[in-house]
């Protein structure tokens, strides 16, 4: 097997995550799909690290994880406060950005 298959898997997972962001309305699930996309990227980074024979790709993946953790914290806080004010976790309910 060619390790390139890891990249194909990564691309597939990324696409699934992106599609999920587009079709789900529950903010939490949308958020989870974003996490899925991030993880797909991480897989690609790790594969690249193996491909080039150095650890920089893994470092980037590590930083991605840290940033993702920060993002999750803030994102979930936003979802919670959104739910408090609107009693809904639907991203479509927060649709004030229009004329």
């Amino acid at each position: 097997m060619n390790p390139v298959n890891y990249l194909y898997l990564s691309a597939l997972l990324f696409t699934i995550g992106a599609t999920g962001v587009l079709i789900r309305r529950n903010a939490i699930v949308v958020f989870m799909c974003i996490e899925l996309m991030l993880n797909a990227c991480n897989l690609a980074f790790v594969t690249f690290s193996r491909m080039h024979g150095n650890l920089d790709g893994q470092i980037i993946a590590f930083f991605t994880m840290v940033v993702a953790a920060a993002e999750v914290v803030v994102g979930l806080a936003i979802i919670v406060s959104l739910f408090r004010t609107r009693h809904s976790a639907s991203v479509d309910d927060a649709s004030l950005m229009k004329l």
């Binding site: 390790p3 890891y6 898997l9 996490e35 993880n39 991480n42 897989l43 790790v46 594969t47 690290s49 193996r50 893994q58 993946a61 590590f62 994880m65 993702a68 953790a69």
Partner: peptide, 19 residues
């Protein structure tokens, strides 16, 4: 598991523990 298989042992563990 894939991380581990790709030689990223630290990341594999972190993925399980942190993520």
């Amino acid at each position: 598991v894939f991380y581990l298989a790709n030689g990223a042992y630290f990341l594999g563990i972190v993925q399980i523990v942190v993520y």
